[in-house]
Amino acid sequence: MTTNTALTTKDLSVTYVGDREVEALKGVSIDFSANQLSAIIGPSGCGKSTLLKSLNRLHEIQPNVEISGDVHLGDQSVYNTDEPVPKLRKRIGYVPQTPTALPLSIYENVAYGVKLHGEYDSKNELDALVESYLQKVNLWDEVEDRLETPGAELSTGQIQRLCLARSLAVEPDVLLCDEVTSALDPISAESVEETLVDLKEEYTIIMVTHSMEQAQRIADDVVFLYLGEVIEENDVQTFFQNPEKERTKKFIDGDTIVEYDESDDDSPSEAVPAER
């Protein structure tokens, strides 16, 4: 596999301008390689989810967000474009942190995105698509004979794999995954991890994780985000064995005590909210 760049961010800044102003991202420039699994790590509240959502303009669904900079998918700008946002999001899929079945049957969950974009010609084709994507996430054998039952009745681990299948079915180039294993039991988490590793053959995967072990296990590249800034971006080997930055080293060594630069006027309680 070649390691072309699939997605780049340039000087990306995101500010929440609600009741209090939060600079969640402060000029982030990253290259995400194609067909690689890139992990974004960092302490809670450092802007991981914000970064992920800004990659396909998902934060635009909430009010009070200001953004500057740009994201490029290949040659195409994500922000400076006339292309409708839904079309962009079709190419850059997103799997939310909470495993969420849409209020539809298992079959319709997978078929939903395909139907939105009208990318099938017959019922047979759709059936085949649904089956192949459920196979891809190793869920088919478990749900084969209950496709018409509500997706919400599956176990949490199964729902998360259903979410993956649903996102893959719209054939994105890039898949954004926000802590997709954090709500799962260890066994389901492992199965989702395996699925992700399989998937990078065909997709570019960018995942947020708060688990360094997980990043170490399955990622090719690691981006370390800290208080809205990229501290280090490296391949997984270098990152964990031979990090360039002192900060990274401390973080890897489990130094959870957060230090603040003098220039930073954020109070500690604001910048690092307790894990929910």
């Binding site: 409708p84 969420t100 849409l102």
Partner: peptide, 27 residues
């Protein structure tokens, strides 16, 4: 749940399609 909206938008749904899905989730 907000995640219904996120998931639906994340699949490339329009606001209207997402609204229908949210209404369905809250049926």
């Amino acid at each position: 749940p907000d995640s219904v909206k996120e998931a639906t938008y994340g699949l490339g749904a329009t606001r209207f399609e997402t609204a229908l899905m949210t209404a369905r989730a809250a049926l």
